[in-house]
Amino acid sequence: MSLSANRYLEDIFLSNGKEKQLSWLRQQINSILSAKSKQKLYITYSLCANHFNADVTFDLVHEQQSFTVNTTLLEAARLYLLQTVLIQEPNFVKAVQQLIQVADKTELEAFLKHLYLLPNAIDYKFAGVEALRTNIATVFNAISQQNPYPGAYFNDAEWNQMYLKAAFMQQDLTKILDVDKRANKDLTRIILDYAHERWAAGRTIDPLFWRPVSKFIDGDVLHDLARLFSSANIKERKAATLVCQSATNESAKKLLKENNEFQEDAISGKLTWQNI
């Protein structure tokens, strides 16, 4: 996180006619930093609600990462506050962790959405991983969807837990970032076990769920891919095509040749995991 991102937020406040509010916020930040006061930080965090609208939204575009996050002016003001304070005084990290601890549902969603944008974002990993344990879909989605944080900071076990739970909660798997980057052997085993359980119970599986297995294909995976290729569900045949298309395994390539219904679409880029 850099000060240029900070200027980006400043521009957003100015283009929304918030000159006065921004100068109030800057004054508050100076006073927080000179007093090194946790209470002043909390007062300012709370008071932001009196100065910035929670009903004006915009798309916050991250400078390097290819992700945007829908943000309210109030959330942006609080993000700006925390970013600026943490850059100047990293010792506020504990205060910010406590702030996240007492967040209500709406605030927690905002924190999780913007977690990646906080300086030393790894310091908030506990909150990120804790959000996987919730049964509140909006909170779970705030960390798992359109969010680069899990891809950057979660270990394999945490990432796998998120991916499996998203499938289990029947959330939109296309919104999870870094699926290919974070694919791992253990996840492939988890996917197979889950699929077999569902099939045994006569239930279906989201075809998108298969995406991470490409690089970890062995006999068991091939067996399941063959089953997908012979499925009556066109989406399952497409999923098997995409898995084999990005695989390096020779048997997978051979399987794709034998089941080439969508191979051309996959090669040309007409068929992707996003439009399956």
Binding site: Y42, L47, Q98
Partner: peptide, 12 residues
Amino acid sequence: VMDLLPLYLHKD
């Protein structure tokens, strides 16, 4: 506790 109080004052 005084440090903590402001965090709650804006809640719904």
